[in-house]
């Protein structure tokens, strides 16, 4: 059996309120991502999905602090890595796409130069060579007229194009793991569909593993092979995507699926009400005590 690419073990982190008190945000999260696998983390605001990704990237800032656990990337514990080493990994072996491409791109620099910087920093190319590679990278994410577009500043591009630039930057150095944190939330539906298809196809073609974070179960279903459902700092259920949707085991997952208006689900008679998670779960605070992780390996092997 192959070793997991990313192995998060009992990760705990919290926000320091003062010297002695610590408010937990992640209460022992464990999951694995295999090489080339697309893994989705789904949950509502405040469930801890984004801090998980920031912890993997080594981007936690005070007052957020790790309280325990390990993040093993190719067997190496990222939490014990010196900052300099982490900087070499970040952007190179582990890359990230953010939700809002306008704030993640530098407004004062052309997009071609920002992509080229990746090649200069991580692959020691000359600027001339790097800029040629940048145009190629823009072509790979299907930006029309890449040589002309490379000279554009971020504000001259639409939201969908900017997100393509972000993807080109993230995939520039052929990373082993791509973290995508709500990459399409700010986009129109048809543009979202194109960007999702792009991420899916490029990562499949290059064998890049994906950690995909979203609140949208539909988006997760169209990209990921396995899903973890997060609630209040815990992974409450994890399974292959198809099985999770077909047979959700945890109350919260069931509530989440029932709360979703789905295409084609409306019946002839009147407009039925959606499931109110709070009403089926009388006491939300009890929810995290009943963990349910389906005992299934990523290859579908029963232990």
């Amino acid at each position: 059996m192959t070793a997991p690419l990313l192995d998060i073990r009992d990760l705990r982190l919290g926000v320091a309120i003062n010297r002695s008190t610590h408010h937990p945000l992640l209460k022992g999260v464990s999951f694995q991502i295999m090489p080339g696998e697309a893994y989705g983390l789904v949950g509502e605001s405040g469930s801890g999905k984004s801090v998980t990704s920031l912890a993997v990237m080594g981007l936690l800032k005070k007052p957020l602090a790790i309280a325990g656990g390990e993040i093993l990337f190719k067997g190496q514990n990222l939490l014990a890595l010196p900052k300099r080493e982490m900087r070499r990994l970040r952007g190179n072996r582990i890359a990230m796409i953010f939700q809002e491409p306008m704030t993640a791109l530098n407004p004062l620099s052309t997009v071609g130069r920002q992509i080229a910087e990746m090649f200069v920093l991580h692959q020691s190319k000359s600027w001339g060579e790097a800029e040629k590679l940048a145009v190629e990278a823009l072509g790979n994410v299907r930006v029309p007229n890449p040589d002309r577009r490379a000279k554009n500043y971020p504000h001259q591009m639409s939201g969908g194009l900017r997100q393509r630039v972000m993807i080109a930057m993230a995939l520039a150095c052929d990373p082993d793991l791509l973290i995508a944190d709500e990459p399409t939330t700010a986009l129109d539906v048809t543009v979202q569909a194109e960007v999702l298809r792009l991420i899916k196809e490029l990562c499949a073609a290059r064998g890049t593993a994906v950690l995909f974070i979203s609140h949208d179960l539909g988006v997760i279903a169209s990209v990921c092979q396995r899903v973890g459902v997060m609630y209040s700092g815990c992974l409450v259920e994890e399974n292959e995507t198809r099985l999770l949707f077909a047979d959700p085991k945890h109350d919260y997952t069931r509530g989440l699926l029932g709360a979703l208006p789905r295409l084609g689900s409306r019946s002839e008679h009147g407009r039925q009400r959606l499931v109110d998670i709070d009403s089926i779960i009388a006491d939300r605070s009890k929810l995290t005590e009943t963990r349910f992780i389906a005992p299934r390996g990523p290859e579908g092997s029963q232990p």
Partner: peptide, 8 residues
């Protein structure tokens, strides 16, 4: 629309 039923 990213619809789970259609995607799966």
């Amino acid at each position: 629309i990213p619809d789970p039923a259609a995607a799966l």
